[in-house]
Nucleic acid binder design. Structure first.
Length: 491
RNA sequence: GGGUCGUUAACUCAGUCGGUAGAGUAUCUGCCUUUUAAGCAGAGAGUCGCGCGUUCAAGUCGCGCACGACCCA
């Protein structure tokens, strides 16, 4: 138990004194009839007469300016803040006695009629007062608020009380997800739920979290991707499915990585990756316009234009046009490898042309793609689950979407040839066989599903956290996750 | 994993050359019935992240650790 300092002790004493005055410190019998923002909105014209009648609101005291026998109180509910004017002569001596023991941070209810102060501020003239919840801890200072990022993440509840822009970011996050759902459902997609705990962590290459099921006596992994299950649903005959849910990857934390993060994955039968480029353009620009009211967003000082159509490059085109690479270098494997080496890239002896190009792309091109850009024709070598291009089997019918230099989406026409798929998975497993933190295993059931026949389809994953970062101008993924992972507090 | 920076009152921050710690807000007391970071007068409040070392003396210098931020891998 934390030792009580002076301030905490005084709060507890006040709470005791209020209790002795007959106040229920944690009452739950006050039903506010109005929300603060509604009152503000309906009375925002300073020339028009104010609404008549008693308003009742409940919220947290955020500021308290006390005079001898009167006071101005700022109270905040979920929707906003309003000022309340409290007078001893109106409330009566006994109620005012109780009022004087209230603190910033307490939750109270007020009833009264509206008026404007001499400076024109809309104010409730309190006729009644109801203490609802006593706060035993002081809020941060009123001018600077709470700025310490560690405390903001560890005590998000205080962050949310103090920082309206943080509340706004998380409202936008919810809205973005709602709009995506609506968009997909309106186009005939069905939202599904697939296992978060999987016996084989497939669908991506990443280190999984391991857990154990006692009754079954077996290890399970938290999923790194839902992909292989969503494809099983295509086999089952559902033609347009999506899932918005958490993936878990047992890797480092950074401004762009949280061990659990939210992915949208969707799959559409009889569609190609080109269809998904159109859909993605439409969906993201629609969501952006709805959430921000504009097709251009400012991200960390950069202007980003989201209006469609978006630029589309093949990887080779992007290397030449954006990365400034000589086309002759890309034409020949040895030239490409040599060029990559000059750029400081170390390649495994067995890695081929595609791997070299992808490394060069990451180094020379990615960070330059500020406005939304689709990059297509990813090498087959780095795309184990994607369908080969009919004309050039070295590349796949795949794209990634980049905005502000970051990957936002990854999509491809899905490989549905079970023989090819099994070979590629076998190769992939062999390649990562030495990493003890990855648990490679052939998903025989997935291959069996493909053997029944999966309709041709295209699928896509969109990192929701990164999309929310873009649309809320947030520098860190921790600013768009309510409770980001941190190390335990020391002590 | 490496580098840089940070950690001082509940919050936001100062702290000089190493000499036993300061401000504003918040809190407490008194005055104050239209304030807007309300005002005036007074008071209390600190394990200077943790540990070890150097020194007569450490918030300050050194080393280690913890937590966080940013950059790099």
């Amino acid at each position: 138990m934390e030792e009580l300092n002076q301030v905490l002790t005084q709060r507890r004493q006040k709470a005791q004194e209020l209790a002795e005055l007959g106040v229920n410190l944690y009452a739950n019998d006050f039903k506010p009839a109005h929300r603060i923002n509604d009152i503000l909105a309906k009375n925002d014209n300073s020339d028009a007469p104010l609404e008549e009648g008693v308003k009742s609101v409940a919220g947290r005291i955020m500021a308290l300016r006390k005079f001898g026998k009167a006071a101005f109180v700022q109270i905040q509910d979920e929707t906003g803040r309003i000022q309340v004017y409290v007078k001893r002569d109106e409330l009566g001596v006994e109620v005012y006695q109780i009022f004087k023991k209230l603190d910033v941070g307490d939750i109270v209810g007020f009833g009264g009629v509206l008026f404007r102060t001499q400076t024109g501020e809309l104010t409730i003239d309190a006729a009644s007062l109801k203490p609802i919840t006593k706060s035993l801890r002081p809020l941060p200072e009123k001018f600077h608020g709470l700025t310490d990022v560690e405390t903001r993440y560890r005590q998000r509840y205080v962050d949310l009380i103090m920082n309206p822009e943080v509340r706004d970011t998380f409202r936008k996050r919810v809205e973005i997800i709602r709009l995506i759902r609506e968009f997909l459902i309106n186009r005939g997609f069905m939202e599904v739920e697939t296992p978060m705990m999987q016996a084989i962590a497939g669908g991506a290459t990443a280190k999984p979290f391991k857990t154990h099921h006692n009754a079954l006596g077996m290890d399970l992994y938290l999923r790194i991707a839902p992909e292989l299950y969503l494809k099983r649903l295509l086999v089952g005959g559902f033609e347009k499915v999506f899932e918005i849910n958490r993936n878990f990857r047992n890797e480092g934390l950074s401004t762009r990585h949280n061990p659990e993060f939210t992915m949208l994955e969707f799959y559409q039968a009889f569609a190609t990756y080109e269809d998904l480029m159109d859909l993605t353009e439409e969906m993201v620009s629609y969501v952006a316009a709805e959430v921000t009211g504009s097709m251009t967003v400012s991200y960390q000082g950069q202007e980003v234009d989201l209006s469609p159509p978006w630029k589309r490059y093949t990887m080779d085109e992007a290397l030449v046009e954006v990365g400034g690479v000589d086309p002759a270098v890309l034409a020949d494997l040895d030239c490409t490898r040599q060029f990559a080496k000059e750029k400081g890239i170390t390649l495994e002896p067995l890695s081929g042309h595609g791997k070299a190009k992808t490394e060069l792309f990451e180094l020379l091109v990615e960070e330059k793609l500020i406005n939304p850009t689709f990059v297509t024709q990813y090498p087959t070598e780095v795309s184990p689950l994607a369908r080969r291009n009919e004309k050039n089997p070295e590349v796949t019918d795949r794209f990634e979407l980049f905005v502000t230099g970051r990957e936002i989406a990854n999509a491809f026409s899905e490989l549905n040839d079970p023989i090819d798929q099994k070979e590629r998975l076998t190769k992939q497993i062999a390649e990562r066989g030495n990493d003890e933190e990855i648990f490679p295993e052939m998903d025989e059931d997935f291959v069996r599903a493909l053997e029944y026949g999966m309709p041709p389809a295209a699928g896509e994953g969109i990192g929701i956290d990164r999309l929310v970062m873009l649309l809320t101008d947030s520098a860190s993924i921790r600013d768009v996750i309510l409770f980001p992972h941190l190390r335990p507090e020391s002590k």
